[in-house]
Nucleic acid binder design. Structure first.
Lengths: 225, 225
DNA sequence: GCCGGTATGTCGTCCGCGCGACAGACGCAC
DNA sequence: GTGCGTCTGTCGCGCGGACGACATACCGGC
């Protein structure tokens, strides 16, 4: 099911044996969502874990003044919704299908039982959560010290692993995000993102290719200013 | 060992049986630190987990431009250092004794073995990490939308649970933090924190009591602006 | 006591960037 | 085609808050 997806994510499903995965999914319910459908929203009481089998999911919160703060986009093979699983508290984060998406919804109880019986699964969940802690800590640190341009370059940096290295050393990356999406990921305004993109193109740091692709200097180059 | 400490933290040690705790600590090494000593620093290879038995620990990162970003202060009974345990990667976060502090250092291997054998311990670690994910997400969201005054009020809000409710409804809280500490927690400058504290005192929202204590309106009142 | 290190209060200056506004550009539906 | 909704580019204004600078206050050590 997860084979051949070109998975790069070091997350949940690829770490389980086919057998474990089968057992877990026997108690789960498949469910599909169209683009922009919510998978869950803040305030909800459901604490299922969701294993993504197709598509992409945007994880975010709404701030009190209506701003959308995006934490990450989750891909196939990743599991989401772990943060509220144990505490059994209402959702604080929202999840929305970025593309047409399919998931297995694993009921809280099934997930807990399974982790009790298979410690290695619990350890995998620990690994997933630990990675998220580190990435959030990094985001917070960057936000505190970097200006918008640097935050944007760091974002491209992080996404570069999903792109293809070109012969000339640059990276070709499918980048189907609007400036608003980008702004919400780096907590900046849409206008500032637009103008910095324009400026980077002027300087030749990045280049548009077709509708959604982006060609930019290798992260290492960018890092060296 | 952890009895009678007035523990409020819903973290690690208080959730384990005395027996489990004994087994775990039999493979751990006690260690003590003076105020301002580092427990670990970014770049280090050690992935021990640290269980705090006395004192308080500041968890933070240094940004590239030398800014200190504080994520939280950990208290007695909490466990720290889980984020890099599984991935076996170098520390990214720094830990420093805020007070004279004692810990048990649990070697990576011992911790992993123990979680394998006791799934309920692994689940507890999941709970700890999940809570940290939620709190970091909240910090990021607040940072994106709130100005410094609101971030400061929210900080007092969160700390209010550690203080004593007075007859008049206000909260008396031991608050031994410098303005610089506060600034680093809410990512603001020291000067701005100083001036906002002064302003809040002028407005009667908060009041100093003795050297380190603070008396302020109940969080609920503050929340209602 | 004196003295040095650290914490606090306050004041200008300056700049990053949020925000409103508006004008194209591009897509899709009909 | 026309019309509408969404996205992008750009400009100017204004403000929050970072930063440097400096005075004062407090603390511990000797």
């Amino acid at each position: 099911m997860f084979a051949g997806t070109g998975m790069l994510s070091v997350d949940f499903a690829p770490h389980l044996s086919q057998q474990d995965l089968g057992v877990l999914l026997s108690r789960a319910r498949p469910s599909s969502f169209r683009k922009r459908d919510p998978l869950f929203t803040a305030g909800e009481r459901s604490q299922s874990a969701l294993l993504i089998t197709k598509g992409q999911v945007k994880l975010f919160r709404m701030s009190e003044d209506g701003r959308e703060v995006i934490f990450r986009y989750s891909a196939v093979g990743e599991i989401i919704g772990l943060a509220e699983l144990l505490s059994n508290s209402p959702r604080e984060t929202c999840a929305e299908a970025q593309l047409s998406t399919e998931v297995y919804m694993i009921p809280r109880k099934a997930m807990l039982d399974f982790m009790q019986q298979r410690p290695e699964v619990a350890l995998r969940a620990i690994g997933v959560l630990a990675a998220r802690v580190r990435s959030l800590e990094e985001a917070l640190t960057n936000l505190a010290s970097d200006n918008v341009e640097i935050r944007l370059l760091r974002l491209l940096d992080r996404m570069a692993v999903l792109g293809d290295r070109q012969p000339d050393g640059r990276v070709l990356l499918d980048f189907p995000y609007t400036h608003q999406d980008v702004a919400n990921q780096i907590t900046a305004s849409r206008q500032t993102v637009s103008s910095i993109f324009a400026e980077l193109k002027r300087r030749g740091v990045i280049e548009s290719v077709g509708r959604t692709a982006l060609l930019f200097q290798s992260p290492d180059d960018v890092r060296r200013h």
